[in-house]
């Protein structure tokens, strides 16, 4: 496997990140993933370095979500080992937040109360978790809407709340399962920028699953191709992560072409 490229993240981390908890190192060795009797991924080796942003692309049904659910601890591996900082992942934990594609907010709780939930679970006292939740909502552009119920705001706004909820608990890894998949192109570009902005202040490791090649190339430090003819997983370095201006650079275009070719006839 190719070596992790983490220069990008360490350079952009500002002073504030010093107080943030360090990112988790996630690792799969010869892992077999899926439901019992129905493995989706086999002989999978993957090493996600602490603090890096790894994007995962692959054809539908290749096991992208299965990979995330395993890393989250919701789905035990069928074989091999799956570890965080060397310890096996056996169950879900607040250190590994999961952001879902849609409608994972609790509909009976206000936006604020949804963001407060991970803090309440961590035992943060009431006044402090309220303040933290309001700060996070303001950061994702939803200041003043704290008391709304999820169904009273748009789909894009709900995803921003989910992002705030995931990050409010200061997790050491954030696992994102096509979080912007249901949004229109314009909202999606805004959300990508928001994600880049909020992640700058954390040191969390991010695994970001998407079916959008442009999104994967823009966001990732590295990119993992899953379930292609090139093997169970194929890692590619992204030349200039999170730089919009790099979109038309020859090396970025070459990377995009390489990914599309690997994804097969539908992509090319």
């Amino acid at each position: 496997m190719s070596s992790p490229a983490v220069e990008g993240t360490t350079v952009t981390a500002p002073e504030r990140a010093v107080e943030a908890p360090p990112g988790l190192g996630l690792r799969l060795d010869g892992a077999e993933l899926g439901r019992p009797g129905a493995p989706v991924l086999e002989a999978l080796d993957l090493d996600v370095a602490p603090g890096e942003l790894l994007t995962v692309v692959g054809p539908s049904g290749c096991g992208k979500s299965t990979l995330l659910r395993t890393l989250a601890g919701l789905l035990p591996p069928l074989g091999g080992s799956v570890t965080e900082d060397g310890r096996p992942i056996t169950r879900p934990d607040a250190d590994r937040a999961l952001v879902f594609q849609e409608d994972a907010l609790l509909p009976w709780r206000s936006l604020r109360s949804n963001v407060e939930l991970p803090l309440a679970i961590r035992g943060t006292e009431r006044a402090r978790r309220r303040r933290t939740a309001e700060e996070w909502l303001a950061r994702v552009g939803l200041g003043g809407r704290e008391n709304r119920l999820p169904h009273r705001v748009s789909g894009g706004q709900r995803q921003r709340v989910q992002l705030a909820r995931a990050l409010a608990g200061s997790p050491r890894a954030v696992l994102m399962d096509e979080p912007f998949g249901a949004l229109d192109a314009q909202t999606r570009a805004g959300m990508q920028q928001l994600l880049v902005d909020v992640l700058r202040d954390t040191r969390a490791t991010v695994v970001f699953v998407t079916h959008d090649v442009d999104e994967a190339v823009f966001l990732g430090d590295r990119l993992a191709l899953l379930g292609t003819s090139r093997g169970p997983v194929c890692l590619l370095d992204v030349p200039r992560p999170r730089d919009r201006a790099a979109h038309n650079e020859p090396e970025t275009a070459a990377l995009r072409r390489e990914i599309l070719e690997s994804l097969g006839p539908l992509g090319s």
């Binding site: 989250a72 601890g73 919701l74 879900p92 934990d93 607040a94 250190d95 590994r96 937040a97 999961l98 879902f100 409608d103 994972a104 907010l105 609790l106 009976w108 939930l117 991970p118 679970i121 961590r122 909820r165 608990g169 696992l175």
Partner: peptide, 25 residues
């Protein structure tokens, strides 16, 4: 199921899931 999974991945346990997902939901 996604509501329960969300609370689990925030570190919530069985009683948290019962009180804050199962009962209200």
């Amino acid at each position: 199921p996604v509501w329960e999974e969300a609370v689990l991945t925030m570190g919530g346990g069985r009683w948290r899931v019962l009180a804050q997902v199962v009962l209200p939901g």
